[in-house]
Amino acid sequence: MMKISVRNETSKLKSVILGTAVSNGATPTQDEAYDPKSLEHIKAGTYPKEADMVSEMEAFRAVLERHDVQVLRPELVENMNQIFTRDIGFAVDDLFIKANILPDRADEWTAIQHIVEQIDPAKVIFPPEEVHVEGGDVLVWNDHLFIGTYSGDDYSELNTARTNLQAIDFMRELFPNKKVKSFDLIKSMTDARANALHLDCCFQPVGYDKAIIFEGGFRDQEECRYLVDLFGEENLFRITAEEMYQMYSNVFSISPEVVVSEQRFTRLNLWLREQGFQVEEIPYHEIGKQEGLLRCSTLPLYRE
């Protein structure tokens, strides 16, 4: 049996499911876009090419394996975008939770069954149908569980609203010993600079006590203030709307000391090094055009 253990976002990583960009399918039409950033690139003719995305993911895999991480991959579904494994499931403590994702992405779940079947079935959780939750909205931080959501009346009309209020209640029942904090995020289907697709697009912890944050991604500044107070002003790297758009907060921790980041994130990478982190810089800009980056394309299964 495969053991699951994820108690925070930064402990030493031992095994992870990394997505794949192979057989990614044709460039979507404007009507098929799931998010405003993809739409922007579809319209501009700058949507990423499969070969570029494959090479970016290979660079990521190489870094993970160099740090002795077991890298698992989904089975290949022809002509399907399978990059963002964080959307299809996530681990909290010793449980693996299936994400209830957009219906036309169900094949992505099927493609990781060969991995899920190795986990103790008692540890695999299937939320009820009315609970919408994606891994990008769920951040585990020791005794805290941070969950991004959207409480607007137009929830059902927004493809960019991925985690609903029923999910908050569900996670509170599932983890009664954790402080489950929800964060109402700003959503847009038309403006990628005013759309926090997931919580990890505007906030993410790094190391033992630091975090990257974009205050403008939160609809409720009181909720944002909770994070500022919890981590402390001196431990925060604040990003701009443009940096959120570039996915600055969607880096990925291999350990409390090692962070994988996009090579163009000059300001962030400098700050991380100033804080004593080892920064593994890789090209991931093309994948970022789909409003997802490094954390989005990983599904950690075991951290020490």
Rank of each mutant, 00 (worst) to 15 (best):
A111C: 04
D107T: 04
R105Y: 04
N100Q: 13
L102W: 08
L95F: 10
D93H: 14
A106V: 12
I115G: 11
I88H: 01
Q113Y: 12
A99W: 00
I115F: 14
T110S: 03
A106S: 12
R105V: 02
D107G: 02
I115A: 12
E108C: 10
A99D: 03
I112G: 06
W109P: 01
N100W: 11
I101P: 04
H114M: 04
L95H: 08
P103G: 04
A111L: 04
T110I: 07
V92K: 07
L102Q: 05
I112T: 14
L102A: 04
I112H: 08
P103D: 14
H114L: 07
I115E: 11
I88L: 03
I88M: 04
F90I: 11
D94F: 09
V116P: 15
N100L: 09
V92A: 13
I112Q: 08
H114E: 06
N100F: 09
A106G: 03
I112R: 05
V92R: 06
P103H: 08
K98Q: 15
V92N: 07
Q113M: 13
I112Y: 08
L95D: 08
K98S: 08
K98G: 03
F96Q: 07
G89T: 00
A91N: 01
K98N: 09
F96I: 10
L95T: 06
T110V: 09
D104I: 00
H114G: 05
W109T: 04
R105L: 03
I112D: 07
A111Y: 02
G89R: 00
F90Y: 15
P103W: 04
A99I: 00
L102S: 02
D107Y: 02
